[in-house]
Nucleic acid binder design. Structure first.
Length: 359
DNA sequence: AAACCGGGGCA
DNA sequence: TGCCCAGGTTT
């Protein structure tokens, strides 16, 4: 489809949108800057994550790392510890790598064009477009979740938006609608429209600056678009989590930095099948490591990830000999420090049980 | 319980 | 290119 086939003129949309944005746009911490470092940081944090969750992290990051040089100069572990709780921990790894790339390959300056920006790990087509548009006012399109939903409705797209066909079409529309002027404001504005007006459920069409040209509204489909994709079932995985306690300290380990939940701390675990008996497995472990002490069940938690559900049975094991377990990636922490370390979400639930439990 | 969300990695 | 993986929030 070329632009002559659009159901409305792109400028009709962008003019209405910009006027609305001037009146009603949000004032977010990363909006009052054109510093590409700050814009990049906010965009990476906002991937897969809501604005409200990001704000505190964003402020804390900037206090610690006010420039790309300071971020590049720190250790990956430090970055991961600050990221704990935000999820998608590979973003923290990519953030650190990209900071070093900017310093070393781009002499401390973020490139302005989408192609160069996309060379940075963690920066795909949409994030590159956002940085280019927001920091440099270049005519670059984005397609984040908000924009995707807005376009699905504006054009009454009748297929699930994540299909590869739909994705192509949506990118084309996004590029066609992006104006040559005021790209910074336009880009902020269309994201705000999705976040404030063209919301997933019960969109506020009566307040929408594009209500006159919206094809979904015209067809009374605004409620039912975008179409949902097929949802799939996820398996359950089982583990035992071991709260290994010696005097006032607990044994924690840091997960492999490149893997699932990379760099997060956790209690040591044993993976299980649905059929195995956790108590038996636990006895086996205790005898394997020649541990003497008392094991008591603390409780069970469930944690849902996107592709599996985790069931974890937590045991408190008070030991009086621990030489085998104090090596490698493992580290002993006093109980009162556990709330401050970068535990992943599932094991935070287990820690909460331990803390409720009292002494 | 289910939907949502940008990008990386691999076949 | 198409598919799988990824984590916490919202509804």
């Amino acid at each position: 489809m070329n632009s002559t086939e659009l159901p409305f003129r792109p400028t009709d949309f962008s003019q209405q949108l910009l006027a609305w944005y001037g009146q009603s746009g949000r004032n977010l911490p990363w909006r009052n800057t054109r510093d590409p470092y700050r814009i990049w940081l906010s965009e990476i944090m906002l991937q897969q994550t809501t604005v409200s969750a990001v704000i505190d992290y964003y402020q804390r990051f900037l206090e610690k790392f006010p420039t790309v040089e300071t971020l590049a100069a720190t250790s990956l572990e430090h970055v991961i510890d600050l990221w704990a709780g935000l999820g998608y921990y590979s973003r923290a790894r990519n953030l650190h790598t990209a900071a070093k790339m900017v310093v070393e390959q781009f002499h401390g300056r973020f490139p302005e064009d989408v192609e160069s920006l996309q060379q940075l790990p963690g920066v795909g087509r949409s994030t590159a477009g956002a940085i280019s548009a927001l920091a440099f006012d270049q005519r670059a399109a984005i397609l984040d979740g908000n924009v995707r939903r807005v376009l699905c409705r504006l054009f009454a797209l009748q297929e699930p938006p994540r299909s590869s066909q739909a994705e192509k079409q949506l990118w084309r529309w996004s590029e066609q609608l992006t104006p040559a002027e005021q790209v910074h404001d336009y880009t902020q504005a269309i994201m705000d429209l999705g976040a404030m007006i063209c919301v997933p459920r019960n969109p506020l069409c009566h307040q929408c600056p594009a209500v006159g040209i919206c094809q979904a509204h015209k067809l009374e489909l605004a409620q039912s678009l975008p179409l949902k994709g097929a949802s799939k079932k996820i398996p359950t995985r089982y583990e035992i989590a071991l709260l290994i306690n010696h005097q006032d300290r607990y044994l924690l380990r840091r997960r492999i930095i490149t893997g699932f939940l990379g760099g997060m701390w956790e209690f040591p675990t044993l993976s299980m099948t649905a059929e195995e008996d956790p108590e038996k497995k636990l006895q086996l472990l205790l005898s394997d490591f020649a541990l003497t002490g008392a094991a008591t069940k603390l409780g069970s938690i469930e944690h849902v990830y996107s592709h599996f559900r985790l069931h974890s049975d937590a045991y408190h094991i008070k030991i009086d000999n621990f030489s085998h377990l104090s090596e490698g990636e493992n580290c002993w922490f006093p109980l009162h420090e556990l709330p401050t370390i970068a535990l992943h979400g599932a094991h935070k639930k287990i820690l909460a049980k331990r803390l409720q439990h009292g002494d």
